[in-house]
Design a protein around this nucleic acid. Structure first.
Lengths: 116, 116
DNA sequence: TCATTTGTTCAATGACTTTTGAACAAAAGG
DNA sequence: CCTTTTGTTCAAAAGTCATTGAACAAATGA
């Protein structure tokens, strides 16, 4: 499979980053990516919904400039574009991750509402 | 005019905050609010678009828990809900303001794209 | 009372979002 | 070659978003 398109760093817009993270599922994906030092295989998010829907969420995050996606065999591996985002918006990504962590549980979805 | 509804602090969701700030006009409003120590009269944003559209944007920000709106005479005054947001998501609001400042110019809309 | 100021609400429009299942594509393994 | 694995793309549906101008409401001031 071919590697997908990624926007160049200069084209990463703040509003697009926030838009990408305005969805609870994608916030949960962010936290999982932040909690994992290596790349994550896209398939390992299977507990978060249907394949086609996840594919849609991955594309959103990739098009916003939040993640890099790499193809290998039949699989795809994702990781955060830490350096690019840090250079454009210093401190932003870490802060978003910290805030998201307080909202997202290990299970994958929102807490706060349930009081945990 | 009656004061509008505001969500209680516990109901302020991260995804709603990010959603409210995923729009360039509202990011510009955020920066203007952050740059002004006192409340701002809603009418003073007239350079950012049509009245009815601004009213829509104000409502979005208010419903997300980002701002407080107070009525006085025929006017409305807006300010950031700094304390509430700081307690729920420490550091988040200041970071978003800092990042937004690098994207938004005094004129009101986006820079970065134009290279300024 | 009548007009002005300030802002909201409404209806309409066109565009985007999220979600689903079915169809498709590409690599790998038998 | 056939099958399995992994993931994308497509079409459809239902919902939300941003924007506009017109109509409305409420306070103020002549």
């Amino acid at each position: 499979m071919r590697d997908p398109f990624h926007p160049p760093a200069e084209a990463i817009e703040l509003s697009a980053i926030l838009s990408a993270l305005s969805d609870p599922t994608r916030l949960a994906i962010l936290v999982r990516l932040a909690d994992t030092p290596e790349e994550i295989r896209c398939g390992s998010f299977g507990d978060m919904g249907a394949k086609s829907n996840l594919s849609y969420h991955f594309a959103k995050m990739r098009e916003a400039g939040l993640v890099t996606v790499r193809s290998e065999g039949t699989s795809r591996y994702m990781s955060l574009r830490r350096a690019d985002i840090e250079r454009l918006y210093p401190g932003l990504l870490d802060q978003l991750i910290a805030s998201a962590r307080s909202t997202v549980t290990k299970a994958g979805v929102a807490a706060h509402a349930t009081g945990t």
